[in-house]
Design a protein around this nucleic acid. Structure first.
Length: 285
DNA sequence: CCTTAATCCTGGAAGC
DNA sequence: TGCTTCCAGGATTAAG
């Protein structure tokens, strides 16, 4: 479900609600969604909530403490995950079989990790440094921070389809099926164009357009297709601004030709083969 | 290297 | 109404 704009929206709404609060206890309803330390910040104060790509981290700077402490929890929402801040009086955490982890905050507030499909997960680390040196080290630069040079270098090293490369979190972190289709349409680049044939000015355009689209999506609170909500339970509004995602067969907003649907990198892909086809040809010689 | 398919799961929507 | 089939925002793995 959640790509960078949705995860950033969760980060902001979550941080606003939990920053500076102590975690009294942690309840684990499904231990198999947790990897690494299962202490999960118990007894710690949440100082910051960080994001890289589609992943979040709840971080306690911590004071002096024993070496076994867990001061950093990484959360990946996968397809159907959510992090919500609720009051225990109106939460059904114990009866909802999809709530897997509950962090108890002061005054009856709780943070719930809910994930019906369980493609997401929770990872406990000693501290932020350990997360950065291990799990997050494998991620490419964040999609909002990557430079044209970094992107161009990454793309130039692979012959895969451009869309497949942009979906690869090792190359650039944060893009998923929705925003890649929107990005490629906005830049008039075809999803099947070989990544290594993307020219420097096109990389520049990709970076500029990525920042523009993701920023607008964040401003709208992300895209809600079915069940995405932020930490306060609010839906996003950017889905009404999608130009191509999930619009196969509808007329291209630019030229009117019906949008084409295909499968690229195993994902349903929508593009305008008139507006975006030229980009394949221009790069091929 | 590269791509594709299968896999992890649940639930909503569409088809009959 | 009910049953079946397909599909989904992600990411890894095995197979070809």
């Amino acid at each position: 479900m959640p790509e960078l704009p949705e995860v950033e929206t969760v980060r902001r709404t979550l941080e606003a609600a939990v920053r500076g609060k102590h975690i009294a206890s942690v309840r684990l309803y499904r231990a198999d969604v947790v990897r690494g330390s299962d202490t999960l910040l118990a007894g710690e104060r949440i100082d910051r909530v960080e994001r890289k790509g589609k992943q979040l981290a709840l971080i306690s700077e911590g004071g002096r403490q024993s070496g076994a402490a867990c001061r950093c929890v990484c959360v990946h929402l996968g397809m159907s995950g959510s992090l919500r801040v609720v009051h225990r009086s109106d939460s059904d955490a114990t009866s909802d079989k999809h709530v897997h982890v509950v962090w108890e905050l002061p005054d009856g507030m709780q943070v719930l990790f809910r994930d019906p499909r369980r493609f997401g997960g929770v990872w406990g680390f000693a501290d932020e440094a350990e997360l950065l040196e291990t799990r997050w080290k494998k991620l490419g630069p964040d999609a909002l921070l990557i430079t044209p040079k970094q992107l161009h270098t990454g793309l130039s090293r692979t012959k895969r389809a451009l869309k497949a490369a942009l979906l690869d979190q090792h190359l650039v972190a944060g893009l998923g099926n929705i925003y890649v289709d929107e990005l490629l349409y906005a830049t008039k680049l075809h999803p099947l164009k070989p990544a290594s044939e993307v020219a420097r000015p096109e990389s520049q355009r990709l970076v500029r357009t990525t920042r523009r689209i993701l920023s607008r999506a964040i401003k709208a609170g992300g895209s809600t297709l079915r069940d995405y909500v932020d930490a306060q339970g609010q839906s996003g509004g950017f889905q009404t601004q999608h130009k191509v995602y999930s619009r196969g067969g509808e007329p291209c907003p630019s030229c009117g030709k019906p949008l084409d649907t295909m499968v690229v990198a195993g994902r349903t892909t929508t593009a305008c083969d008139r507006c975006q086809l030229g980009a394949i040809l221009s790069g091929e010689r």
